[in-house]
Design a protein around this nucleic acid. Sequence first.
DNA 1: GTTGAACGGGACTGTTTCGTCCAGTTAGGC
DNA 2: GCCTAACTGGACGAAACAGTCCCGTTCAAC
Lengths: 214, 214
Amino acid sequence: MNANSDESPAIRLTARGMKTRTRIVAAAADLMRVQGIGGTTLDDVMVASGVSKSQLYRHFEDKDALVRAVITNVGEFVIARETNMLGSVSTLAGLRRWRDSLIKANALRHGMYGCALGSLAGEVSDHDAVAREMLDELFRAWQSLIDDALGRMKRAGVLDDSIDTARLAVGFLASLQGGYLLAQTARDVEPMAIAIDVAIAHLETLAAPDRAAS
Amino acid sequence: MNANSDESPAIRLTARGMKTRTRIVAAAADLMRVQGIGGTTLDDVMVASGVSKSQLYRHFEDKDALVRAVITNVGEFVIARETNMLGSVSTLAGLRRWRDSLIKANALRHGMYGCALGSLAGEVSDHDAVAREMLDELFRAWQSLIDDALGRMKRAGVLDDSIDTARLAVGFLASLQGGYLLAQTARDVEPMAIAIDVAIAHLETLAAPDRAAS
DNA sequence: GTTGAACGGGACTGTTTCGTCCAGTTAGGC
DNA sequence: GCCTAACTGGACGAAACAGTCCCGTTCAAC
């Protein structure tokens, strides 16, 4: 609904001000991905971004406001990444490449930190309604990207015409998020890899009868 | 590995001491499910359990120790529930009843708080190695229960003999956990319901050829 | 070259939370 | 009835954190 992707600037006007604002958000996002929101103090953000506390409160009314800015920032990043990686997928092979790239990235950190969006959602959903709705919106956008890819596969004759791609997209995203969580808990990507593979295997059973392989 | 399900008592001997200990853990578990671990203070636990702070530190060396006790407690509860609900499942209809019961329970709170185990895992996995391993163990136990159910379905001729139930179990648990997270973020059970339904639909495609329905 | 926004730096308040300690009370086993 | 674990109750310290405030400086636009 809200058309501005930069959230309330809290204070008007900008020039280089935007740059420090960006620097603050970037540092906060990094810290929060690693330490969680609750584990990240404003002083941490202060040090990491090389910005004085007065500036922090100049740009953000609140810690919650900063968290929300982090959410839009991380959200934009994830959606951009997924748009890029999923936007041209129209075959099962393409979907597998998408899978490989996610798994590879998560394997590098042995599953640590989980999904950038999912972790934020788990920590914030039950105590900041605004943030929760922002994350809900982002998940929906992610679902749409998956849905679109499945739609293209359907139109390309890879998938059977009768399937409900919107429902499958929800299932896919759930498998992905659950996989992230299991991998994080196990400190091992394997469960995540299995989860996505099972989801893809399901898709294979829904392949259009005249084109079992692609 | 560890054979004692009650974790280190921190102090030896007991009588009614066990009762207050249980009371503390129960109160802490309730609070942490609703407010999260970070959002729950020891004073909260103190008030909710009607126990003085000195007793808290009599039974638990640390907040972390209390958290671990909560994990074993919640873990036992969840595993007991799942053993009960999943232990006799050997048909697709039985699996659907299991699904209905989980969805129904989560619908009552509109998805709030998510999965008792999953939420703990997300909050604690990256900063308490011991707790992380405990949760990993619990997830594995949960997987085994699902695996067993799928195994029974296989032996009963409901599922095809060639399927790898262990992998499917991981996929199932991931769908479940991801569904919990999406439902929590949306404040609506629907995505969770869809996620599990998609997982079950996949199972249906793997039904033994001579028994397409069950 | 003046003006004002952007910034550094840090002191300061108030609150929350973890954790310690201890003096006195209750209760149950032997 | 004695002994000791279990417990109440609260004072206390220390640290972490959020949030406020102010003074002086830098930078960029006009």
